[in-house]
Nucleic acid binder design. Structure first.
Length: 508
RNA sequence: CGGGGAGUGGCGCAGUCUGGUAGCGCACUCGGCUGGGGGCCGAGCGGUCGCAGGUUCAAAUCCUGUCUCCCCGACCA
């Protein structure tokens, strides 16, 4: 296709239409696609491989924190959910409800089936598992000696969203949910804080995605939580994306499920619980953080293939080139990055070399090596580095690959991280003093991906600011942990005395 | 749930107003020519036009009903 060769990369560009660009990168990068079931997605092998790499690392961190993996039911009896009032209220509008357990011939519509066998009590498909895990906790916890109890599950959950968006907000998604129970409030709070720190570090060092940490304001809290903490990342269009959360749940879930224990004094007490999770949304965050107008860009840590060798088997030397490509893959596979053998393959498929190279470029592979007869003769390979975009390949001597490849991967990892960090800093405004400036900062052309960002300012938490924020479609992302509130500060929105420093942004 | 839009080969679309028995691009297959930045030429495979009913000599096209998906709003990891 002639237009294809001129028009490099995905269409539209980030500048033209950021949401459409995101969809295009996800599609062209073979990460995921919407299924023909409303709001549901198929995570394709390439995207799932990225998720598996995230999972593997997080799973290690979670286990290091003391939690163990377990699995709890997909179906939750309606009565369990009902037992925690705020929780019901928060999730009631997005529940998938199972009311029947059988299909039968529909007498009014021959050849079709209809639900039969009405359930005595409807089951809801878990939107999260606090209530059902609570029942198990109640059984398992009898004494202070049974505490703390920390479990984690990798599972799918369902929230019947009104407006699905692939990878960011789908009806069904995959996640990890940790649930913990402690004898004391301070331990439970500390656990929520500790796990948020795990997420922060994971996002920053593994996903090359620096994040803000803080506490959610009351209106953004998880239904039923006393405290919700989150990590917030900034996407390339300046919007915020909540990339992970942890909650101190107080004793309300313990009360609902009757999770109590005999303490050292022989007194019966309720446990304090916490929960924490990250989801496949991280895939979306990763893409919106690092990808460019050519397509996906993956930090080496989460690249299913870190190096791909594309042979250019021209003429009589063809077979020798293919052989050399395989040999090169073996050689590079013997190297390691961050203590793990480098994930490398030689792409020997029967396709045109430029097609293959573009495919790997689009899919975000950090390093693509091209090997043709000329290189073979000269003892070099042509190297393309994904972080520097669409540049000409660099010729690299073969015997220097051993030292070059790991350090190039490290360089790419760092460059993605630094770019994301620079963006976060450059687009966080600290000097906005009143509502007019505030409005101006957020009143940007939605097609302008370089406008807007985070705004950090004193806040009064006054109810009338909620309405202003609502109008502007701006939310309080968090009350950052590193509070820098000067004494006698005034609220940026209302001019009333400020009680906290807040980070404001438009959000996904 | 309210307001818009759309269902036609694997994907993206035209054709519908003005009925005449289905077409284009990409992908795929085969052959040839090519060959270090998304190849070229030629020949092919592939669709009961979302579903049901109706009007008509004749329906992708008109009518009725129905299902689904997409976009915008209220909700959210």
């Amino acid at each position: 296709m002639a237009s294809k060769s001129k028009n490099k990369g995905v269409s539209p560009s980030r500048q033209e239409d950021f949401p459409a660009w995101f969809q295009a990168v996800v599609r062209e990068g073979e990460v995921a696609e919407l299924a023909h079931v409303r709001g549901s997605m198929v995570i394709r092998p390439w995207g799932y491989a990225i998720w598996e790499l995230m999972q593997a690392e997080l799973d290690r961190q979670i286990k290091r924190s003391g939690a163990s993996n377990a699995y709890f039911p997909l179906f939750i009896p309606l009565s369990y959910i009902e037992s925690e009032a705020e929780h019901v209220e928060g999730f009631a509008k997005e529940m998938a409800v199972v009311t029947h357990h059988r299909l039968e011939e529909d007498p009014e519509n021959p050849g079709h089936l209809r639900p039969g066998g009405k359930l005595a009590e409807p089951l809801i498909v878990r939107p999260t598992s606090e209530t059902i895990i609570g029942r198990s906790f109640a059984k398992w916890i009898n004494s202070y000696r049974d505490l703390p109890l920390m479990v984690n599950q990798w599972a799918n959950v369902v929230r019947w969203e009104m407006r699905p968006r692939v990878l960011l907000r789908t009806t069904e998604f995959l996640w990890q949910e940790g649930h913990t129970a402690f004898a004391t409030e301070s331990e439970a709070r500390a656990n929520a804080e500790q796990m948020l720190e795990v997420y922060r570090d994971f996002a920053e060092s593994f996903l090359a995605m620096p994040v803000l940490t803080g506490e959610k304001p009351e209106e953004e809290r998880f239904p039923g939580a006393v405290v919700t903490l989150s990590i917030e990342a900034m996407m390339q269009d300046g919007k915020a994306l909540q990339a992970g959360t942890s909650h101190y749940l107080g004793q309300s879930f313990a009360e609902a499920a009757e999770i109590n224990f005999l303490d050292r004094e022989g007194e019966r007490s309720l446990v304090h619980t916490a929960s924490w999770g990250v989801s496949t949304r991280l895939l979306g965050a990763l893409i919106m953080s690092h990808s460019d107008d050519i397509g996906l860009r993956l930090p080496p840590t989460v690249a299913p293939q870190q190096v791909v060798i594309v042979p250019i088997p021209r003429g009589e030397e063809g077979p020798a080139v293919l052989e050399a490509a395989e040999e090169l893959a073996r050689e590079i596979g013997g190297l390691s990055f961050e203590g793990i053998p480098i994930r490398v393959s030689a792409d020997l498929r029967d396709r045109e070399p430029p097609d293959k190279r573009w495919e790997w470029t689009r899919k975000g592979v950090p390093l693509v090596l091209e090997l043709g007869p000329r290189d073979l003769k000269e003892g070099v390979v042509a190297l393309r580095q994904r972080d520097i975009g669409d540049a000409k390949p660099e010729s690299l001597e073969r015997d220097k690959l051993g030292s070059a490849i790991p350090s190039l991967l490290a360089e790419i990892q760092a460059s993605y991280h630094d770019a994301a960090e620079d963006r976060l800093e450059a687009r966080t405004r600290l000097d906005v003093s009143g509502p007019d400036e505030f409005r101006e900062f957020f009143d940007t052309d939605p097609s302008d991906a370089s406008a807007g960002g985070f705004l950090r300012a004193p806040w009064s938490e006054a109810p009338e600011s909620a309405q202003l924020l609502d109008e502007m479609k701006v939310t309080v992302r968090c009350l950052p942990f590193d509070q820098k509130l000067a004494p006698d500060s005034r609220c940026v929105l209302t001019g009333k005395p400020a009680v906290t420093e807040a980070v404001f942004a438009k959000a996904y």
